[in-house]
């Protein structure tokens, strides 16, 4: 599904440069649910950005679904992002002047689907996250948990191969966080491959595998017994 070899990335800071990723090797199979953990500055977000094609590595190899990802033009990156990836952000990143349905349907617009089809699919995914009744509401009329569910529906809308979640519960209280995790687990049960960046141990424990990053290298990579979030809800 996803294969990374000897990935390096550094950022220029003034005259010197900051070596953020120092040779990452990682491979993720289809249907996995992986937590990427690390303190701030460990390089976990950079890694996720590279996997999400929002950033490019300096060195190393990245293969996604048998497609080597390198030397991307902006246009190509846009197409790959649209086709392969679904993003879930800590701050939801909904477009605040579009209602829930329009937000969910936006990736479909960039796929070139007709409006009728977009509405149909958008409603289907909203129903899946239990917010069909809120389709016409603007993001600021929704609670944090609802916003994140709309964002998940949007990430699912284009039917991506891989879901990338960057601190998906970072802005939510514990109860809502567990609800969101329960939902992500359910998606994983249905076969979706999910990568979650987090620094919360309880969230990481709800995944099937934990990868720990320290100072740009993988210190630990282990499979764990998944804690079901549904028991706390």
């Amino acid at each position: 599904m996803l294969k990374i070899n000897k990935l390096h990335k550094s950022y220029p800071i003034g005259d010197s440069s900051l070596h953020v990723l120092k040779g990452i090797d990682l491979s993720v199979d289809s249907g996995e649910m992986v937590a990427i953990m690390g303190s701030s500055g460990s390089g976990k977000s950079t890694l996720l950005n590279i996997i999400g094609m929002l950033d490019e590595a300096d060195e190393g190899e990245y293969i996604l679904d048998n497609v080597p990802i390198k030397n991307l033009t902006e246009k190509k990156a846009a197409i790959y992002r649209n086709k392969f990836l679904g993003f879930i952000f800590q701050s939801f990143n909904l477009i605040n002047y579009k209602n829930a349905l329009d937000n969910v349907a936006l990736p479909l617009y960039y796929q070139g689907l007709k409006r009728k089809e977009r509405i149909e699919k958008g409603l289907f995914h909203l129903e899946k996250v239990g917010l069909k009744a809120w389709a016409e509401h603007l993001p600021n009329e929704l609670s944090g948990g609802q916003k994140q569910r709309v964002a998940i529906a949007r990430a699912l809308a284009a039917d991506p191969k891989l879901l990338l979640a960057d601190e998906p519960t970072g802005a939510l209280d514990t109860k809502t966080s567990y609800e969101i995790m329960a939902f992500l687990q359910q998606l994983n049960d249905e076969g979706k491959t999910i990568l979650i960046v987090t620094h919360e141990e309880d969230i990481a424990d709800m995944c099937k595998r934990i990868v720990r990053l320290v100072d740009g290298v993988i210190m630990e990579d282990k499979f764990v017994e998944q804690v079901r979030a549904s028991q706390y809800v």
Partner: peptide, 8 residues
């Protein structure tokens, strides 16, 4: 956001 969602 739009670009992340696949806007060219």
């Amino acid at each position: 956001i739009r670009k992340a969602l696949g806007a060219s």
